[in-house]
């Protein structure tokens, strides 16, 4: 798998710091499962954040090391021996997604028309994570954004303007200018889309849908 569209450094740093809400983290963890290169960058940022600890000033603690040892008790976990990777099952979704909704075959889709189906996975403070299923060659409605949209491809692929996004690729859109993803021919495109504000549609019809489907 050749990934050409990666997580931006600022998002990866905020993920390393543990500063991102669940929906964003879900898209990032799904990408990280598929992208060794971003995992290497994440490790670097964790090290930068750890290095920052050394510069931190020293707060007064009301407990000392002995108190903590008393709380911890004598329990020490044995050195973990990683179980062999069981490859007998071929999953489409990486584990962060499977933990939430099972694998692709388990999804109960809602039809939105135009060859597009969706499944809302998670909502918190206006941040919505949903799976989108776009039939081969079908196109999503042209839309702009009030906020940010992360689209992580897990199966198939889509074109947007002159760019192609396939399994593993993540599209990060944070601008207002409208765009229109079109699924590649051949197999359906399945992606995880996370947004923090309702999309802005250009046409009247999708605006009617918008209320019904909370997009």
């Amino acid at each position: 798998m050749k990934i050409t569209h990666h997580i931006t450094d600022d998002l990866l740093y905020l993920y390393a710091a543990g500063d991102l809400k669940f929906g964003w983290s879900l898209a990032i963890a799904t990408h990280l499962s598929l992208c060794p290169s971003c995992r290497a960058t994440l490790k670097t940022y964790e090290q930068v954040l750890a290095e920052n600890l050394a510069q931190e000033h020293v707060s007064e603690m009301s407990v000392n090391a002995d108190d903590v040892l008393a709380i911890a008790g004598s329990q020490m976990e044995p050195c973990e021996i990683a179980p062999p990777v069981q490859a007998e099952k071929n999953f489409v979704f990486p584990k962060p997604l499977r933990d939430l909704c099972g694998d692709l075959g388990d999804i109960k889709w809602s039809t939105m028309g135009g060859g597009i189906k969706q499944k809302i996975l998670h909502e918190e403070d206006g941040i919505v994570a949903r799976l989108l299923y776009i039939s081969p060659g079908a196109s999503a409605s042209a839309h702009g954004h009030n906020g940010i949209e992360l689209t992580q491809v897990v199966s198939g692929g889509f074109f947007d303007g002159d760019q192609a996004f396939e399994r593993g690729d993540i599209q990060i859109v944070a601008h207002d200018s409208p765009h229109q993803p079109i699924a590649m021919n051949g197999e359906a495109c399945v992606c995880l889309a996370v947004t923090d504000a309702p999309l802005k549609f250009r046409n009247f019809l999708p605006r009617l849908f918008q209320r019904a489907f909370r997009i």
Partner: peptide, 24 residues
Amino acid sequence: RNKKIDLLRKQGRPEADVNDPAFE
């Protein structure tokens, strides 16, 4: 960092798992 997330969030943070068969 993970302890902070545990204490602040009702749901933990999704993480990639090296033992996941779908892991690249």
